[in-house]
């Protein structure tokens, strides 16, 4: 029936509008819900989310050892040539030659934080860091060397 449909329309419309207003009103009277971070003021206490991608880092343990074998899987995975790996040949105690990492060059200015290198790494040697304050005065400072000086590959990582 026409009148019944008409009134049902009005009832449903009003109800849905009130539902929306209830939600915004709920937020209006509860300032605790505010999610704004007042960034430069709260720099000391600011905690970034774990999944935030700020830059690629290579974790080193206490003995200055990393897990990179120099396989260049990350270099191949990178869509815009952000990573350049320079390898060298170590002599193992058995007298064999073995490929190892010399320098992990990372161009931050080219990186889009896609995370494909981290996914490609077979030994989990690199991961995404949470630092986002990257501004510098000279572009050349954005080209970084990720492995610490004098570091070597951890024992048992192949």
């Amino acid at each position: 029936m026409f009148i019944k449909e008409y009134l049902t329309d009005i009832y449903k419309g009003t109800k849905s509008l009130l539902t929306g207003m209830k939600r915004t009103g709920y937020y209006f009277v509860r300032p605790r819900e505010i999610i704004t971070e007042q960034y430069p003021d709260n720099r000391e206490t600011l905690v970034m989310a774990e999944r935030f991608r700020g830059e690629v880092v290579m974790p080193h343990d206490a003995n200055n050892e990393h897990a990179c074998t120099g396989c260049t899987a990350c270099e191949l995975a990178c869509p815009n040539a952000t990573i350049k790996i320079i390898t060298k040949f170590d002599i193992t105690p058995e007298g064999k030659k073995k490929k190892a990492l010399d320098t992990f060059v990372y161009h931050l200015e080219l990186c889009t934080m896609c995370g494909l290198c981290v996914e490609a790494c077979p030994t989990a040697a690199i991961k995404m860091g949470q630092n986002f304050e990257h501004s510098v005065y000279d572009r050349s400072q954005l080209t970084k060397k990720l492995n610490n000086p004098g570091s070597k590959i951890r024992e048992g990582v192949e």
């Binding site: 915004t24 009103g25 937020y27 209006f28 300032p31 819900e33 505010i34 999610i35 704004t36 007042q38």
Partner: peptide, 13 residues
Amino acid sequence: KVAAHMQIRLGPN
């Protein structure tokens, strides 16, 4: 200010 608080923001401060 009203807009900010309804959108869980702070607004001009």
